[in-house]
Design a protein around this nucleic acid. Structure first.
Length: 567
RNA sequence: GCGCCAGUAGCUCAGCUGGAUAGAGCAACGGCCUUCUAAGCCGUAGGUCCCAGGUUCGAGUCCUGGCUGGCGCGCCA
């Protein structure tokens, strides 16, 4: 990496200046391109310890720098004492070789060193269809997982099924009531039941499969049959929706297995050993305040039933025991209240502070024509994920869910999502990719076979071309940063800005055909085609990380070509 | 009342964990169709970074105190 050689050279120069320990030498990319490709503030930071003016330090430093050895073409002092470095054109053009060489792996790195990380997300109870909040979470969890995989982590995508709790009982009672109603019986629907039409659908399916055998039957067996049937139907539906949404899990972890395999019991006894457990009012409590929680928490109610808290702790213990010493939970921000207690429970068992890590995301607001869309035909009181992606498509839905920081509320604008122009950021990026493919197609070139070594890359000398190469060469850093921050939205921002640069460069050929890729002399075309290939690689890889497709042609374009062929 | 998250252009949002003149898209205004795709491109305008203090060479970014909005504070899950 050119940055490292530059940093090493600065360190050497500092050493000759008599600076033994300059701390970490910070090299950053200036926002303003006039300030070069890299800049350092060492002179500013050394002003105080050296008791010298920053600009004077900068001058002495630049005199001692071997520009060539640093791999740059110029070092300039600017502003209050920044030193700006400019990369030589050959250095920039040479990056195209790396990009083409790495191809589908360009952007991968190994910060994670193969270490295991568990990413838990969605984890919706099988009590109803997925809603748009789950959609955001599915997209986020999947993209964060991909980012981690791209940066060298061994990732397990995990879904935690709460198939054992009170909510499932509510589902069973709701299904029972709908079933009886289907059988023509007059029964009251439970007050806390699930109101959506889907429960009636399930009851009908059950009636179709098993007839009237449960009519008037309010025995535990009947309720159990309802429970099992409804959960199976809903799990099948959830997994089908997630599959369509292109989210695959490595593990569906069942809450019920925590009881069956004794993890809940063993967690209680291990917590007792911590000395932080006590009884009060007939319930069993854990002194979570010991580890920073607001108040102590009940583990086992006076009824003898555990609260949600206990299996949650037991579950995270299994994560650790299964080898995941790093775990990331993607959750809705409305669940943030559980974080302190779960971590406290885990610390009581000796797990490190800050385990697991959380990515909390805010709610999703769906807007059409400027007004909020709230209701769903099927679920009643919310918009389902399936309704959303059936309408806008999986690519658009995934991208929209990812393009904002998780902790910012997301406004999902259906009008924008359905727009097929560059106003829609998804199309803007996909279009840029399709455009690169289109150039190659029109030029009769197999893009993946374009060989940078056989082209004269020094012909790529326009500002727009140099700028583009610098930008696509930056892609691995973008991925690394996004992974470290658990921030897929920064990949979106990068791709959109890159697509803008690509469009500008492309359209330079509108007025001046000599600036096009096709129709210019062979050497020039070969060099520019290398750039086209490299751009295509970065767009494709970037979209792949987000789980969004990179079409070789856009639908609209296909329609036009089909029409032309017919005429 | 306490806790978490947010507050940046008319709107939706970035801002690389403290850097140089705060950016993008949409909307607005002006220009460009004989194209490697005009569902596009180029340009212009638009700001009390919620407020008040503090930290330092330097603050949208950090610390304190307020204000506004969302969410959460159960022997619910």
């Amino acid at each position: 990496m050119p940055v490292d050689t530059l940093r090493a050279e600065i360190a050497r120069a500092l050493h000759s200046l008599g600076v033994e320990d300059a701390g970490e030498i910070v090299l950053e990319r200036p926002r303003n391109p006039d300030h070069g490709d890299w800049a350092t503030n060492v002179a500013l930071q050394l002003a105080k310890p050296l008791r010298k003016a920053p600009r004077q330090i900068a001058e002495e430093l630049v005199d001692l720098l071997d520009v060539q050895r640093a791999g740059v073409s110029a070092a300039e002092i600017a502003g209050p004492g920044f030193i700006n470095f400019r990369l030589a054109a050959e250095e920039v053009q040479g990056r195209l070789l790396e990009i083409a060489e790495a191809d589908a792996a360009f952007g991968r790195s190994d910060a994670g060193r193969g270490e295991a990380v568990n990413v838990e997300f969605v984890s919706a109870n099988p009590t109803g269809p997925l809603h748009i909040g789950h959609g955001r979470q599915a997209a986020l969890g999947d993209a964060i997982s991909s980012l981690l995989a791209w940066t060298g982590w061994k990732v397990q995508r995990e879904y935690y099924y709460n198939d054992a709790g009170e909510q499932i009982n509510r589902l069973a009672r709701s299904t029972w009531a709908r079933y009886q109603q289907e059988q023509g019986r007059e029964v009251d629907f439970p007050e806390d039941g699930y109101q959506g039409d889907y429960v009636t659908d399930i009851a009908r399916e059950l009636a179709a499969a098993e007839g009237d055998r449960w009519a008037d039957d309010d025995s535990p067996e009947a309720l159990e049959a309802m429970r099992r049937f409804a959960v199976r139907v809903l799990m099948t539906e959830l997994e089908r929706d997630l599959d369509t949404f292109r989210v695959e899990f490595d593990e569906f972890y069942l809450e019920s297995s925590l009881y069956e395999e004794g993890h809940v019991e063993s967690t209680i006894s291990r917590l007792r050993e911590s000395g932080l457990v006590y009884e009060k009012d007939g319930a069993l409590w854990l002194r979570t305040t010991e580890y920073g929680d607001d108040k102590d928490r009940v583990m086992v109610k006076s009824t003898g039933h555990p609260t949600y808290f206990l299996p949650d702790v037991a579950y995270h213990v299994t994560k650790w025991e299964r080898g995941f010493h790093r775990a990331i939970n993607v959750q809705g921000a409305d669940h943030h209240g559980t974080i302190a207690r779960v971590r406290a429970g885990l610390r009581a068992l000796g797990h490190p502070e800050g385990y697991p890590e959380y990515v909390l995301h805010q709610m999703v607001l769906v807007i059409r024509g400027g007004a909020e869309v709230k209701f769903s035909k099927r679920a009643g009181d919310y918009v389902t994920l399936r309704e959303l992606f059936d309408e806008v498509g999986v690519d658009v839905a995934r991208y929209f869910f990812l393009m904002r920081r998780p902790e910012a509320q997301l406004t999902f604008d259906l009008d924008l999502a359905l727009d097929q122009s560059d106003k829609n950021p998804v199309y803007k990026v996909q279009y840029a990719h399709a455009r690169m493919c289109s150039i190659a197609r029109k030029g009769g070139v197999e893009l993946d076979a374009v060989d940078p070594a056989s082209a004269d890359l020094s012909l790529l000398e326009r500002d727009s071309e140099i700028g583009l190469i610098k930008e696509i060469a930056r892609f691995p850093e973008v991925i690394e940063e996004a992974a470290a921050q658990r921030a897929p939205h920064s990949v979106c921002a990068y791709l959109e800005s890159l697509a803008g640069m690509i469009n500008s460069w492309y359209h330079e050929g509108n007025d001046d055909p000599s600036l096009r890729v096709i129709g210019v002399e062979d050497d020039l075309m070969r060099a520019r085609m290398v750039l086209v290939r490299a751009i295509r690689i970065v767009l494709r890889n970037g979209l792949a990380v987000l789980g969004v497709s990179a079409p070789e042609r856009m639908e609209r374009e296909q329609a036009i070509e089909t029409a032309e062929a017919a005429a």
